Amino acid sequence: MTPKTSPADAPDTAHRRPAGVDDATVEAVGKLTEALETIERARGHLYSFHQLTGGADFELGEAADLLEAAGHAEIARRLRTELVGRNVLPGRWTFQIVEEYDDGYYERVRAEERSVRDELLQGRRHVFESELKESRRTRGAEGHEARP
């Protein structure tokens, strides 16, 4: 028995290829979007770096306090002077690195990806993935619906 299909069992318009757009264009824009997604992941790691480094700075301060309480005042002073509150790059704490990344490279890549989608796919997102989903799902089968 062949599963029943209906017009609702197709991707929504927001994820369909605009008329006249060829396979190569859909693939290329899909690759650009994939690059943006990788950059999003890198940005997440950068924020992890920011938070982990900030937390470690407080731990260094606590270690210095504990060393001082244990009678190692000179070592505690050295840690506070050399490490606590230290720049991670010349003149920069991690929040400054995050801001530069966000305002520079990250925003530029996001803007270009959006611009290319606007120019070539009428702003539609994930057209390549939507077509991949269509090629892999079983139409009409439970758990394989085209959309919610």
Rank of each mutant, 00 (worst) to 15 (best):
R114K: 15
A69G: 07
G85E: 07
G123A: 06
T2I: 08
A8G: 07
P18N: 01
V21T: 04
T38R: 12
A146V: 00
F128R: 13
D12S: 11
V88M: 02
R110H: 02
F128I: 10
G91I: 04
R80N: 08
E27L: 14
H50V: 00
A28S: 04
P7V: 05
Q51R: 15
H72F: 14
A111P: 02
G44I: 00
R41I: 12
L32A: 11
V88S: 03
V98S: 10
E59T: 04
Q96G: 06
A42H: 10
L132P: 04
E119L: 13
R125A: 15
I97A: 06
H126P: 02
T25C: 00
Q122N: 15
A146Q: 00
H45I: 00
V26C: 01
V29G: 02
G140A: 07
A8C: 07
A69P: 04
H15L: 09
A73G: 10
D9P: 02
K4I: 14
W93H: 13
G30I: 15
G54R: 15
G20T: 12
A70L: 05
H72P: 10
G61S: 11
A14S: 10
R86C: 04
V109R: 03
I39E: 04
H144F: 14
A69H: 07
W93F: 08
G54W: 14
G140D: 12
F49S: 09
T138Q: 15
L83V: 12
L120C: 00
P11E: 02
L121G: 01
R110K: 10
T38G: 06
S48N: 08
R41G: 11
L67I: 00
E145F: 00
E129S: 12
G44E: 01
I97L: 10
V21P: 03
A8T: 09
G20C: 10
P3I: 00
E27N: 14
R16H: 00
E129W: 12
G143C: 06
V21F: 01
T33C: 06
V88P: 05
A10L: 12
S6T: 12
L46Q: 00
E131R: 08
H45Y: 01
T13N: 08
